Computed example of a mutant assay.
Amino acid sequence: MRVFLATLASCALAFVAWDAQARPLNQNDRSVCGWGAQIAAEAQQSKLSGATLYAARKKLQVRRFGKPWMRMTAMGITEQTYNSRSRLPPKAIKQTYYEQCVQHAVARR
């Protein structure tokens, strides 16, 4: 009986874990990931074109953002992109950022 209960409990836990992963992301999470991916791609484009981090940050300072948290987040993404040694094209950076952001959002649930 104990073995049966232990098996049942582990199956229930596995189902709960599967259910949490199977839930699709909401529109807000997808939107935030897409926004961050776009910022990362723009930063990579600036870096590859030879612009300095200072110039990229200045460009972000004058940009209008819809939410108060977006400016500092964009600054952080840009700085991380410039600190990276990656020479990937901006399109690849955008895709990678989006995929990892979605993975993080799913794991957070």
Rank of each mutant, 00 (worst) to 15 (best):
Y98F: 15
Q21R: 13
M70F: 07
Q44H: 06
A37T: 02
T7Y: 01
T81L: 06
E42R: 02
A22F: 07
A105V: 06
G66I: 07
P24L: 09
E42T: 04
H104T: 13
H104G: 07
Q27W: 09
W35S: 01
A55G: 04
L5I: 15
A12L: 15
L60G: 02
F15D: 04
D29V: 04
L25E: 06
L5Y: 09
R71W: 00
Q100M: 10
L5H: 08
M70W: 05
E99K: 15
V106L: 15
A51L: 11
M70V: 06
V32G: 00
A20L: 15
Y82V: 10
S10L: 15
L60H: 01
E99T: 15
L60P: 00
M1T: 03
N26P: 09
R57P: 00
V3R: 12
L13P: 00
C101Q: 07
V3L: 13
L60R: 03
S46N: 10
I39P: 01
L88I: 05
R63N: 07
K94S: 14
N26G: 15
Y54P: 00
R85T: 11
A37I: 01
W35R: 02
P90I: 03
V3Q: 10
A107E: 12
C33G: 02
Q61W: 04
Y97S: 01
T7L: 15
Q80P: 01
Y54C: 03
T73G: 07
A37V: 01
A107M: 14
L48I: 06
Q21Y: 13
M1F: 07
V62C: 00
K47A: 01
K58I: 07
D29L: 06
N83R: 12
V32C: 05
S84N: 14
V102Q: 13
I39G: 01
Q45R: 09
I77C: 02
V16M: 10
R63E: 13
A51H: 08
F4G: 03
A51T: 01
G50S: 04
E99L: 14
T73V: 08
A92H: 08
Q100L: 12
F65P: 03
Q27I: 14
K59T: 09
Y98E: 05
Y82L: 10
I93M: 08
G36T: 08
P24R: 11
Q103C: 04
